[in-house]
Amino acid sequence: MADRHGMVNPGIFEDLQARVDQDTTVRDELKEIIQTLEKQIRTAQSILSRAHSTPTAELPSVVTAAQDAIRHEIDSIKKLAEATAGQPYYKWNGIWTRQMQDATFNVLFCGWLGGFAAGQESKPGRLLTIEETGGIMGVPVNLKDRDAFHLTIEEYLHALISLVDELARLARNSVTLGDYRRPLQISQFIKDLHAGFQILNLKNDALRRRTDGMKYRVKEVEDVVYDLSLRNLVPTD
């Protein structure tokens, strides 16, 4: 037996090659979906960017357009989940985690602007929880008891930091648009988020580095509020 087989049973490497080929097929399929998703993220992003130049009163039209764009993202995310159904989630999630963060950020920002109100009164300043975000995106969150596609806590936290960055920009642009109330709202909101991040025990990774940068955003917005209060522009009511 041993002599006939030689050193290597030929079945071994045939089987290994088949496994590699299978993975390649999945990876190619995922890459294609991710390319589409990236395009959809950029589209939604460009619509959401209009918030920086749109007066608060006209914001609902931006929010509606953004929601529609985000629905396309959600379609692609569903395809990612389908393409890897039955496969180990963490074998693949490195491929799309960046796009999941960006898509999640779009949902969070749109939600903050008043989108995804789900029957409630649409008002800006709302933080969508990870559960609400997962519900909107049609995916489970923080899965531990079974192996399937989901939104991770880390991805949600990354999206939160992106939201803080975006809101710091929006605070300044609100002033330009003549809205002196929103910077106060943003200031409180990101201070509260910053306080939340402070209690996490983060290790030295990308999330930690980005979290460390949050305090600068907090300060930027405080400076805006300070500028307004110095000139008696802060609305009192």
Partner: peptide, 28 residues
């Protein structure tokens, strides 16, 4: 202008406490 002390009253603290527990478990 005091931003070294985060307001203890942040409404998001319970949410982040849940995240902390999960992240700690992962790290351990």
């Amino acid at each position: 202008m005091d931003h070294s002390n985060p307001p203890p009253s942040s409404p998001f603290i319970p949410m982040f406490e849940a995240f902390r527990a999960e992240l700690d478990e992962h790290q351990d």
